[in-house]
Design a protein around this nucleic acid. Sequence first.
DNA 1: GCCGTTTTCGGCCCGACTGTTTTCAGTCG
Length: 586
Amino acid sequence: MTTHHIARVFAEIGQLLELKGENVFKIRAYERAAQTIRALGEDLAAVRARDGLLDLPGIGKELAAKIGELLDTGKCKAHQELLKEFPPGLLAMMEIPEVGPKSVKFLYDTLGIDSVEKLEAAAQAGHLRDLKGFGAKTEANILKGIERLRKHHERTPLGMAYPLAMEFIARLRKKAPVTQISHAGSLRRMCETIGDLDILVSSNKPAEVMDAFTALDLVEEVIAKGDTKSSIITELGMQVDLRVVPDDSFGAALQYFTGSKQHNIHLREIAVKKGLKLSEWGVFRVKGAKETRIGGKTEQELYDAVGVPMMPPELREDRGEIEAALAGTLPDLITVKDIRGDCHTHTTASDGKSTLAEMAAAAKARGYKYLAICDHSQSARVANGLDAARLRRQIKDIRAFNQQHGDGFTVLAGSEVNILRDGALDFPDDLLDDLDFVVASVHDNFKLDRSVQTTRIVRAMENPRVCVIGHPTGRLIGRRDPYDVDMDYIIAAAKHAGCALELNSFPDRLDLNDAHCRMAKDAGVPFFIDTDAHAVEHFALIDYGIATARRAWLEPRDVLNTRPLPQLQKWIAARRAANPRAKAKR
DNA sequence: GCCGTTTTCGGCCCGACTGTTTTCAGTCG
């Protein structure tokens, strides 16, 4: 029973309780617990082992017991009982946009509909329009909802959603009477995947903004169009929500629509205790039935009014940031400007699209002081990996390049060396000794047993020539699951061996993810944040890695490639001097 | 079901849009 699976069970219990029409706060408790667990990163078994379950926010006696039951037996009685009450198809029906628990329950009770397929057939046959509370439009909307669910059931990777949002914003600036405009929602928090795009506008001509928005040629279908809110679907099936507020409310609305939901609920609870009320329209002082607006023009004004120091959007997940803000211990988050070099990049020598000279020029143009070229190693045949002879030639080329361009910018000769099945490296130690930098990565045998895969990576870390483990879980968001590894153990072993872990900025990797990064940071493991650039234009992807690092509370001191080159080289030298066969403690 | 320098019981964030209604329920974020 994995941690991820337990989160799913709790979310499902929440949904089933909704069908049952249970107390909404009980439902919320399960939803919140599912979210807490999903964001955890650490294995629940490990949390229980150190008696930490009750310290998790939203986990009390009951839920801790259910976690224990799930860990021990793989099942939970309450969940099983609920599943007996409702056919599984009802949960799938609740996934349809615009169809919620009340409708599902009603349709099941009156027409016996217990699957998306049956619902579709009933709607097509016109059996829904005469039901109480339903009509022809609702029937049509349900069919549209089913179509949308099938077309677009997955969340969109940040790397696709972000440019799209910027495109919407640029066009609205040009075509609509906007005063201020910003992206909001999970996109502004830089989550690794995005459900719907949220865009916020202030304007004194909201109707014109709505007209301009729904008329954009990026729009495939208009779902809703009101005075302050409209929703559309793009050609790619992504939903975009636009809200328009008066300029005076822009800050309050930006805070509100940035979320997260849990962060907002927490903030509002603090506000309520102080006799305040927060909404997208502003901050209000409540006295009896009278409400006086006291702010909301900027986000800063809103946080000031509530008495909580403002923090960057990436932290607003209710993972302790409000407590840290109140205690004055918010992290000094890393920014793109802190990065002094990229230590995982490729060239045309293996599978890159840009030459060494092009990559160096682009890195220098970004203001970097160093760049490690880490082309693939010999066993990476599909990636045109370099054999020992070609690597030696490349080392010479790089040395010559530095001689010619010795002007405060240095190219480091490196390799992204494959970690073989047994944890050995793809090059002998004496060749690795000639390199300035070594990334070690898994590129094959993704399906090994957890213990075998974990030991494989740990063995690679124990070689002190390895500076960093590249994309440590190997996941490709939406396409390939992470390999099955014991992340708690890998982090402990990295700390013990003195090896760094990579935060790979490629938007379909973002590996390690935010939760694992935060665990590793807390354990004192150093990081490299690299792009894995295969072409000069990939250097810009560092933005996504930095965003993920910020979500993990990383500070410049946690990240080795924020250091000037001499300090970085000192770290590498110290690592190499370390005991080559140190064993991590279990 | 969780939670507590206002509470161990009684609270638990707040508003917009749609469709079906004629004052509101359901859904969403």
